[in-house]
Amino acid sequence: MYKSLLYKEWLKIKWAFWGITLLSLLVLLLMMLNVAYDMEQMTPKGYWSYVIQLGYQFFTDLQYLPVLAGVVIAIAQFSPEMNNSRLKLTMHLPVKENSLLFQMISIGFILLVALFVLIAVLLGIITGIYFPSEVVYSALNATFPWLACGIAAYFLATAIIIEPIWSRRLILLPFSLGFLDLFISVYNTHINLDLFFLFSCLVTSILILFPAYHFKRGI
């Protein structure tokens, strides 16, 4: 059952997933070209001092990419379900509704985690070509909240999409944006805050049950 569901979800997501993966690779390539160009123009020691001493973040092009990925995957996966209330048919499958929903979002979640791991690994490799490990660590540390934000964005966007009533969507939207803004706007995060981001981006998955409940009952 899970396998067939997996396949069904994959069919919906695959183009969005490949698209966003391609976009991520292009952004990383662009970043690499920019670093190489700036190294050439500013001389390596000039660019190192810019990055190491002045804290220039050469990877800020990645900042909004995870949020975009989360939202795009959520739309690709759940907006077709909302057309003619197809989600209702899915919910009539002989699986408990909540576990069915969790199975559905687990697929998007796993794909996003895979994409974000890929982004982090490539960012680490590219940074490691030009800079010592201290800078690699600093870059990954700065990127972590943005990646966690992508996961939270996926769950929150899913909750907003499957919420059947517009007024409730409008209530959830600004608070979701405010919540996601916290992940993106922080700089030099303390480890406690990083742990909170990790924990809270996973916990937001539970939020989707409530709108799904409304959907089921048609209220």
Binding site: F175, V203, L207
Partner: peptide, 14 residues
Amino acid sequence: MFIKLSRILYLVLI
């Protein structure tokens, strides 16, 4: 149970 928890999380988020 999960629905209730989900609603509480809604409130906590806000």
